[in-house]
Structure formats: C-alpha cells, structure tokens
Design a protein around this nucleic acid. Structure first.
Lengths: 345, 345
DNA sequence: TTGTAGGCGTTATCAC
DNA sequence: GTGATAACGCCTACAA
C-alpha cells in the first residue's frame, strides 16, 4: 500500500526536473531530446507509473468524463442508448458516469449537482423533471448539454429527438391500413412529452380517418420497472375488454406494455392477432422473442446514443462546425402481432 | 461562462480567511462562531457556490466514486445488479462509473487502468478476463475490490458469488421430479466459470439419477447481445431435434436462450410444455411475459448489487468488522414452461 | 475562534 | 532543451 509514484519521483530518478517529465509523459509537443524522452519513458514503465488525472484536471480545468442521466437502465431502450454513448466516448478516451433518475425529479437534480461538483463538462440527459432551471444555469456556466429523447427548450442545449408524434401516427395508420376501425391506445401516465406526442400522432391519424379515438391511461404513478409496465398493460386491457364495444386492435405506448396486453388477451383465450391485433412502440429486442413476434415502431436507440455522444465530443472540443438539432424518424417493424381486421378476412 | 466561485472568493466577501470558509463549508467539526458560520453559508448560497471536488480529492487522496465493470448493461441481470449498487452508493453520497467490458478482455483492462488513473478507490467487478494480474496489482496498491458473479481468486478480494452449481443441480432435479428422463442442457460457450458450474450441477443431478447427459454447446464466440443469445437458443434446439432421440425437457443456460428454445419449438409446432418442457436460468423479468411463462432459476441480482456495494462501502470506510465472502443461493421460480413428462400424464 | 502557509500531482510560463 | 516556480481549489497542521 505504498504511495503511488509521481512525476517528481521519476524526475529524481532520471536526474531531471519534473517539468521535463511532464512534457514527455503528457505527450506535449514541447521539445525534449530523444535520449531524455526515451529514458523517462523507460523509467515510467519500469516503475509502473500511473498518472493522477486529478492533478491534471485541476490544473487544466478539463475532464475526460461525461455524465449521462436517464430514467432507468433497466429499460432496454436506455441501456442501448448508453451502449452507443459509451462506445463513442471510449474512442475519445472519455468515460461515462451513468445516473438513473428513476423517474424522480429530486434525484435528477441531485445527480446534476454531483456532476457539476465533479467538474464534468459534458452531459447527455433524458430529463424527466419539469423544472429546467438548474440545467439552464449549468449551461450558462459552460456545461455542454445534449437533450435526448425528451426535449429541453433552452438556449445552448442541443436536441436529439425522436419523432414520437410521427411514430404514433405511423402505427395507427398501419392498423388502419389493415382495415381496423376501432383502435384503442393504451398508455401509462402521460406525464412526459414523449408520451403525449405519441398520443397526438394517434389522434391525428384517427381524426383523419374519421374514426373515434379510444384511449385508456393508467392512473398510477410511473415507477419505471418493466414488471410494472407489464402489469399496467394487463390491467388496461381488461378495462378495455369490459366495455361493450371492445376494439379490434390495440396500440400500446411501449413494447413492454404491449407484452402485458398480449399476455392478458392470451390468458382470456383471445387470440393475437386473429381476434385482436396488437402493436407496440420502441422496438426492443425482446419483441421478437415472444409469441406472436411483436409488430412495433422502432426507435434507433443505439444510434441515438452514438449521435448524442459524437455531438457532445464536438462541442467539448470546441468545434465550430454547424450547430443543429436532430429529429430521428420512426420506422415500422412489421412482425406478426398485427393482421387484417375481421371484416377483411 | 464566468469562472466558478471558490472558497477564496467567499472568504474575501466575508472578510475572513479561506481556512474558515473551508471549515464551514466542509462541515468540519472545527469550532467556528455561529455568526460567522451563518454568514459564510449565506454567502455560499447566494453566490451559488459549488465546491470543486477535484481540489478536495487531490488533497485528501480520497474519492467519492466507485467503479463497476460488468460484461454488458444490455443484459437485464447486470442492469439489475447496477441498480442495486447505485441505490446503496447514493445513500453514501458516492457515484458510479459503469464500464461495459462487452466480453472483451482488452477492454476490461483498459477500463481498469482508467479507474486507477481517476483515483477511484473501490471497484465491483464481474471479470471476464482470465488474466487477473493487473487486478491483483491494484489490490496491492490499495484498491478495494469486490468480485461478483465471477469468482476471482486472490488475497484481499472479497467475493459475492452465486451458487451456479447448485442452481444447475436444482433445475435438473426439478425436471427429474416431473418425470423427465431425457433432459438436454443447451449452453453458449462455456468459457466462463459460471457456465461451467451450471453444467457441473446438471451433470451431478444427471449422474445421481443414473441418466445420460445430453449437452449441446454453441461453437460461436460470445457477443453479449440478447438477440444473439436468442438465436443460439434457436439453433441449438434445431440441432437437438434433428437427433434421433430428442429430449423431453430442455434446460437452457440463461433465460434469453430459453426464449430462443421456446420460440424454435413453437415455430415447429411443438407445444411447450405439453410436448417438451423448458427451464431457464437467471429469472429476468421478461420471463413472466412470454407464453408460456418461463420456469427458471432465480438469481437475486438486485440484492447482489446491494450487498456488493454495502460491503465495498464498509471496506472503503476502513471498517474492521468481520471479513467474509457471500455465496448466494438459487431459488426455483416455478411458472408454466415445465410440466410432467408424457409417461406420467 | 481565526489566520498562515504548505502541499496534494499536474501543467504552464518564464527564464536560462 | 531544460529548470524553477507558480498556479489549479481545497484541506490541515500549526501558530496566533
């Protein structure tokens, strides 16, 4: 448990000043004689020298860390996003602090503070809080921020959004294209913009087709746990079925909820898609593993993470390239949980 | 983008020395007059003071960060572990750097180095590398290490293991208890101790019952992607079915692979569990969402994360309590993918 | 109760 | 090419 070796120790061994050692070991462009350079590098290697990044960061007021705040890593959508972020970060020798806000605004704020205290200069966030003051204050003091998934209005905050509204529209149109007239939309609490957008897309398609919207929303607080979403899907489905005019197709606001819908239907002996069609939203990998494989709207999660991190790296490097936001487009993943409406069969 | 305010700035405003400010703002036990204390706190608040943890850490050679290295966050087992870790860490005002080794030993080593460079003093790791030299060297220089899931032999490294062997034994015995005689074990590459242990448990139960083991192992390299594991499950199943003596029950080395097994069987018109029973391993939440709900062996993932982090916090605080390793016990989660063998029906 | 001064490990600015 | 030296923001003997 001996004290770790520093550039001063190496300087002493090499018989030079620590300045020279620093110049060699930090790959500075400063001129150092080839012989000296080699000697120092050898000593560093032999003595298992490990630089203390704290010293460097304190001095240079920079950091090779970025922060990521997302609702929960247990959601496969976000874990894909993170994998995308981490891959790009690593290429730039950055590492990532992941924070799960667990859908708790207070926790999100706590994490924001931690990130600032640790001198992190870049942040990618899917914010669930409605109070963006702290975030904006951070931007004012130099923090580079990319908002993904959930839009954050504000000067200096770049957006990588997903076109939820169009996704909702697309899914509904797909169902309509299969002849469905009575299409229900089941959703967890619409407390976040993304969910409201999907609903707006659904409404638009429904209105355009001159159909009547059927929406059931969970009254329960969101806890971001997949088993929980699954249960909501089941509950909302049984609620839907107890009406005297049940739908021929159900559109769920995310894939896990769609799993719940399918599960409930199957347990009641209602066949999917022969009796009722089901469409999800997100495009997580598990969708292809269930029976029937889930038709859904795919969000490019992994790519979103990569884009966000690339954009952040540019900002951190002070790139003066063009400034732009990104609106990712939805894609329909047609599998087997949707079929033609009975009238057409 | 003005320079952030420091304790010196506050000292100047308050008309005291920075030492006094430090004593107040770091909640030191050092005596400071109540009036002064309050004044300093007010100034700090009014000026939105945010401490620079780098300075503190550099001075005290401590850090409020722990590192976590796991194969991949896209595996729900590990994302649960991380959620458990993060919860405890937060209680102690620690934060977490998550690193996905993606089943790549070189990457794991790279992350280990980064962690040391950043003066992180505590690490929780599910190591996939066979070369533990760097890890041990880190322990020698003071790093506190908890190995979870995958055992790491070595002085000073605490273990929180899962009894994979017993889990494998339990699953096999459960199948036997339902009258199954020809039980196949399908597994991805047995390159990690955990998988070999499950297999040993399977073998033990098989031998004890005087039955013949049937094992198919994937020849393909592991890529830690759930879609991939799913495909392996499908492939190995079709391989199994092409033999002239197919099994009446299939035991998969993890739940996602079991999904693949069930999917392949279902696609071929073989009913689960009526024709062939299937049992998984891990107990991820998605297991209850498929049809039929998957019978499996549950690993206490979230709890494992909590225990690991609690243990690490104790070590970091220099606790001199008893030193111990933990062996978590498996639990059978009986759902609907296993039924009695045909002979018994 | 408060202040002074030195140092944590590194880099940057001057000199030489 | 190389070396002193002064920061970076904070904590902590020690002194007052």
């Amino acid at each position: 448990m001996k004290k770790p070796i520093t550039i001063h120790d190496i300087a002493k061994i090499a018989g030079v000043s620590s300045a020279t050692v620093s110049r060699v070991l930090s790959n500075s462009t400063y001129p150092v004689s080839a012989a000296m350079k080699e000697k120092i590098q050898r000593i560093a290697k032999d003595s298992n020298y490990i630089p203390n990044l704290l010293g460097k960061q304190l001095k240079t007021n920079s950091s090779m860390t970025i922060g990521v705040i997302i609702p929960s890593i247990s959601n496969p959508f976000y874990s894909s996003v993170i994998l995308g972020i981490e891959g790009i970060a690593r290429q730039h020798n950055f590492h990532v602090i992941v924070c799960n806000s667990l859908h708790d605004a207070a926790l999100e704020e706590e994490y924001l503070k931690t990130i600032v205290e640790n001198q992190v200069k870049g942040l990618i966030i899917s914010s669930i809080s409605t109070d963006k003051r702290l975030l904006k204050q951070m931007v004012d003091t130099g923090m580079k921020v990319i908002a993904i998934d959930q839009k954050v209005e504000g000067e200096g905050i770049r957006q990588i959004e997903f076109d939820y509204r169009k996704g909702g529209y697309l899914a509904t149109r797909h169902l309509q294209g299969k002849g469905h007239k009575r299409i229900a939309y089941v959703t967890s609490q619409m407390d976040r913009p993304s969910r409201r957008s999907i609903y707006r897309g659904y409404l638009k398609a429904t209105e355009e087709a001159g159909l009547e919207p059927v929406m059931v929303e969970s009254a329960e607080e969101d806890v971001y746990n997949s088993a929980y979403e699954f249960d909501i899907g089941k509950k909302l489905t049984s609620q839907l079925l107890s009406s005297n005019d049940p739908p021929s197709a159900i559109f769920a606001c995310n894939d896990v909820m769609a799993f719940g819908v399918i599960n409930e239907l199957t347990e009641r002996g209602i066949q999917v898609p022969q009796d009722i069609s089901v469409i999800g939203f997100d495009g997580i990998e598990y969708g292809q593993m269930i029976q029937p494989p889930l038709t859904t709207v795919k969000q490019p999660d992994y790519e979103m993470g990569k884009m966000a991190c690339n954009m952040l790296m540019d900002m951190l490097k002070g790139g003066d390239g063009p400034v732009f936001d990104i609106m990712l487009q939805p894609k329909l993943l047609e599998r087997s949980s949707v079929t033609n409406a009975k009238e057409l069969l």
